[in-house]
Design a protein around this nucleic acid. Structure first.
Length: 478
RNA sequence: CGGGGUGUAGCUCAGUCUGGUAGAGUGCUUGCUUUGGGAGCAAGAUGUCGAAGGUUCGAAUCCUUUCGCCCCGACCA
């Protein structure tokens, strides 16, 4: 059988992924090393993802704000673990002017900044600095801020959406009067992410706390959402941090409490990024291209008139009318009346993952029928139905697709999670080529034997099992 | 930053060893015939051969320098 994407997933998963991005017209490598240009179709998906999450974030009481792209270098120096975590991948701005010297345009030596700026890799520091001014009294707490911005980390090995030097995300930064309140907040946002990914992205998450070895630079607790890709590797899709008083002490976020005592606040930070798109694409797509859950599909239905020269005008007009009816039903619709061959249109929208494809030919127009195919199920789901019935049922069909896609991933993940009793069992599983997540007693991983297994099989601790934190999930990761 | 590979048409690549002035497939444009899971025929357009310097009557090809990209490792949203 011919597939739209070559190689297929089983032939070469990472090449398949790269070709998928190209075929679905999502993004391309930018002229800047490690950075991507997100193309309109890809960005439309991100906007839907972003808007759905933004609503949930606001429902948690956070307000959006905007902090600067550049952060004074010395801010990083104030939190020891934080600087250790990000120093190796910082992009630094050192000059503010260009000059033509010997025919070459270069930074003007006379414009050297006395203190360089760092392009934000994350904004705990500059938001901590702002909070130190904005938080004075217990009445100012909790303070909940969020921003949707781009950040930059000079990554060694970039991959489109999964790890790019510049990426887009939201970062929330909250401050509380007590450690309990802060920890509860970190856990709450963790759950918000989990619900969002399940309901909107149709992706189940392995949720749990990071082990101390894997924690965020400057956090007391890090809660993570790990996704299982089709090749069994793990993708860290989002994190939520209980930062304790690390940043409030470094930046002087203090408040006068009801008892008249000056205290340091307790802060959290939580973020998800365009990497979630990588997870979305890798989780649901197949050898014919992207498969999008209806909730984040820029077009939920594409209508393709199967035209011949003599029928084109009438069919296109009829299709537009049907498109308008579907839009009235609240569906995002594209009526593809472009001047392409019908077969090419079909493949185009198959590759772009549109959940429902509706084809209308001349005879169907006369009989008021339509042929509908579900992208997630493929050709076998093709059925001809009355147009009125389709309009009446389209929202149910989309809801059904959303649920079925989630269930399919849950079922697949079940085959990818393995319990192992000890390191011997882990090694023989890995040695036998078994892929996926391995669940093992955490204390069994506290030794050199496990360290050498990590090195040999390129695995790492992903997170503790929320249901029983004496267990840890181990997997190969992206 | 270490190991390996690679830069030639929009894309995928041949041509480089053995210097002789630019190729294929695909895509694109036009026309005719087709049209319900990737059509056929015909005509046409497209390149400072990654960059700089050198050798030569002559360089995509040989020499020197340099830059980018890809894959494998340390990293992570």
């Amino acid at each position: 059988m011919k597939t739209a994407i070559t190689p297929t997933r089983s032939e070469n998963f990472s090449e398949w992924y790269q070709n998928l991005i190209t075929a679905a017209d999502l993004a391309e490598n930018a002229p800047v090393r490690g950075c991507m240009t997100v193309k309109p179709y890809g960005w439309a998906i991100w906007e839907l993802m972003r808007d759905a999450l933004d609503k949930r974030i606001k429902a948690c009481g956070a307000q959006n704000a905007q902090f600067p792209l550049l952060i004074p270098l010395n801010f990083f120096n104030r939190e020891a673990e934080h600087v250790a975590g990000f120093a190796k991948e910082a992009a630094v701005v050192t000059h503010y002017r260009l000059k033509m010297i010997d025919g070459t345009l270069q930074p003007d030596p006379d414009s050297k900044l006395t203190e360089p700026y760092v392009i934000r890799p994350t904004s705990e520091t500059i938001i901590g600095d702002a909070m130190s001014r904005w938080v004075q009294s217990y009445r100012d707490l909790p303070m909940k801020l969020n921003q949707w911005v781009n950040v930059m980390r000079w990554e060694m090995r970039p991959r489109l959406f999964l790890r790019t030097s510049e990426f887009y995300w939201q970062e929330g930064h909250n401050a509380f009067a007590t450690h309990d309140a802060a920890n509860a907040d970190a856990r709450k946002m963790h759950k918000v992410y989990g619900d969002y990914m399940r309901e909107i992205l149709a992706i189940p998450s392995i949720m749990g706390e990071k082990t101390p070895e894997e924690r965020f630079a400057g956090a007391d607790h890090t809660y993570t959402l790990e996704h299982i890709m089709q090749d069994g590797r793990a993708l860290q899709a989002g994190t939520s941090h209980d930062l304790g008083q690390h940043f409030s002490k470094s930046f002087g976020i203090q408040f006068l409490d009801t008892d008249g005592v000056l205290k340091h606040a307790w802060t959290t930070s939580w973020g998800v990024s365009t990497r979630m798109m990588g997870s979305l694409f890798m989780t649901h797509s197949d050898d014919d291209g992207l498969v999008l859950p209806p909730a984040v599909a820029p077009y939920q239905v594409v209508i393709i008139p199967i035209t011949r020269e003599d029928t084109a005008d009438a069919l296109n007009a009829y299709a537009e009318k049907l498109g308008a009816r579907l839009r009235d039903a609240g569906v995002r619709v594209l009526v593809d009346t472009s001047d392409m061959r019908s077969a090419d249109k079909m493949w185009k929208w198959i590759k772009r993952g549109v959940p429902l494809r509706a084809e209308i030919g001349a005879r169907e127009m006369d009989e008021n029928n339509i042929t509908v195919t579900r992208r997630d199920l493929g050709k076998s789901s093709k059925q001809t139905m009355a147009t009125d019935a389709f309009v009446a049922d389209v929202n149910n069909m989309l809801t059904q697709i959303q649920h079925d896609m989630y269930d399919a991933v849950v079922a697949r993940n079940k085959t990818m999670i393995h319990d192992v009793a000890d390191l011997g069992a882990l090694e023989s599983a890995l040695d036998g080529g078994k892929i996926g997540f391995f669940r093992i007693k955490y204390d069994l991983t506290q030794n050199e034997q496990f360290e050498s297994l990590m090195e040999k099989y390129k695995i790492s601790r992903r997170c503790l099992d929320d249901a029983d934190p004496t267990y840890v999930y181990v997997a190969k990761s992206y």
